[in-house]
Simulated assay, not measured.
Amino acid sequence: MNKKSKMIILIVVILVVVAVATHLFLTPSTIETEGSKNVTDMIGRSLEIPASVDNIVATSPPMTTVLYMIAPEKLKAVNFQWTDDELKYVPGQYANYPVVGGWYGTQDGSYEEFIAAEPDLIIESIDEGGDGDLSTVKERQEKFGSIPVLAVNDTTDVEKVGESITFMGEVVGAQEKASQLNDFNNKYLDMVHERSSKLADGDKKTVYYAEGDDGLQTNPSHSAHGQLIDLVGGKNVADSANQGNTTSGIQVSIEQVISWNPDIIITNDKEFYSKVYSDNNWAQLDAVKNKEVYLSPQSPFKWFDRPVGANMIIGVPWTAKVIYPDDYKDIDMISATKEFYSNFYHFDLSDDQAKQLLLDSGLKESNL
């Protein structure tokens, strides 16, 4: 073999090695054997999971929501019971998941019930950079025994959820669905980022987020629960600077809300919404006088909050239309709603159903 032939063979070998190394570096499953594969989770732990993950349970609603969106046939239990109204928008084959609780606001998870669901994999939500995450995950792993516990970054921030959606899609083999969800989210995030950045402070509409059946609980700016107000450029009247920089929920009085006199009120509470226009106290507010009170669509997950997470992706264009309808005339909310429900809730809405969801939320027909 001459020198030139040896050189060509050497180059080919180098190219093959580089290609294999590149593939291994870019794929989350770095080592795969028959029936299992090793993955590195989002807290840096290496663990072995089934090569084909078919049964999954998450320990908190935001992760459960993502799993329902991208691979509902692989989800084996949920953290809370759907209401009858919510079930109207859930296909029959997904309507009877067992309820196993979880470790989030209610802290009512049952290890026994999780294990009884016979999952191949358990997804644990972590706060990116949180000091207690590793110890929490280790505790879960100890309690769940041989069932692998995969740590995935918190999905409660609608602007950061994409990385976790992509990671979950790779783990469960639903990359295309995950990419579809991120494309939808990025489309509207790009739109509101571009337009909200041009709003002068004096042109921003003031917004009050009314929680509870009396409307007198709220969340200030920079809270995850009211993040969509900040995102689209609304001015949250319960600004954290006026509340001791707290980002947790706060109790207020009707007198305080009257003094704020917001342009717009957004709520998740059906009872509050049903009586706000007939209540003499609330009647003093401009938002009530001008019919600018809006109820987040509820089913099968709320669009605006509770849980915070990927369910709020459809809430981005909705909140933009609520607060700045003139700036978002190019958004067709009926089409956007149908697309989202079909692709991510696995439920095909008619035009009339989508329109009714939006009208019931308080949007004017001219703004749909």
Score class of each variant (00 low, 15 high):
residue 169 G to C: 08
residue 182 N to F: 10
residue 187 K to I: 07
residue 127 D to P: 05
residue 69 M to T: 00
residue 61 P to D: 05
residue 142 E to K: 04
residue 96 N to F: 07
residue 119 P to L: 09
residue 103 W to C: 14
residue 131 D to L: 15
residue 193 H to G: 13
residue 151 A to W: 03
residue 160 K to E: 08
residue 77 A to F: 03
residue 140 R to M: 14
residue 108 D to T: 06
residue 170 E to G: 10
residue 74 K to Q: 06
residue 87 L to A: 08
residue 163 E to C: 10
residue 143 K to D: 08
residue 86 E to D: 01
residue 77 A to S: 09
residue 58 A to N: 10
residue 187 K to T: 05
residue 58 A to E: 06
residue 134 L to F: 04
residue 71 A to F: 02
residue 108 D to Q: 02
residue 163 E to D: 13
residue 149 V to Q: 05
residue 112 E to L: 08
residue 85 D to V: 09
residue 153 N to V: 11
residue 186 N to S: 15
residue 65 T to P: 04
residue 93 Q to K: 08
residue 132 G to C: 11
residue 127 D to R: 11
residue 72 P to S: 07
residue 61 P to M: 07
residue 83 T to V: 07
residue 196 S to D: 03
residue 98 P to S: 13
residue 65 T to V: 14
residue 202 G to L: 09
residue 158 V to P: 15
residue 84 D to A: 12
residue 126 I to A: 10
residue 73 E to L: 01
residue 92 G to F: 13
residue 149 V to W: 02
residue 195 R to N: 10
residue 106 T to K: 11
residue 130 G to I: 04
residue 101 G to C: 05
residue 178 A to D: 02
residue 66 V to G: 08
residue 133 D to M: 05
residue 63 M to G: 03
residue 85 D to T: 00
residue 81 Q to M: 03
residue 138 K to R: 05
residue 114 F to S: 03
residue 135 S to D: 13
residue 154 D to N: 06
residue 119 P to A: 02
residue 59 T to W: 01
residue 116 A to N: 06
residue 128 E to N: 03
residue 165 I to C: 08
residue 133 D to A: 03
residue 98 P to I: 01
residue 126 I to F: 13
residue 149 V to D: 00
residue 104 Y to W: 08
residue 136 T to C: 11
residue 132 G to L: 07
residue 157 D to H: 14
residue 88 K to C: 12
residue 78 V to P: 15
residue 174 A to K: 02
residue 165 I to T: 01
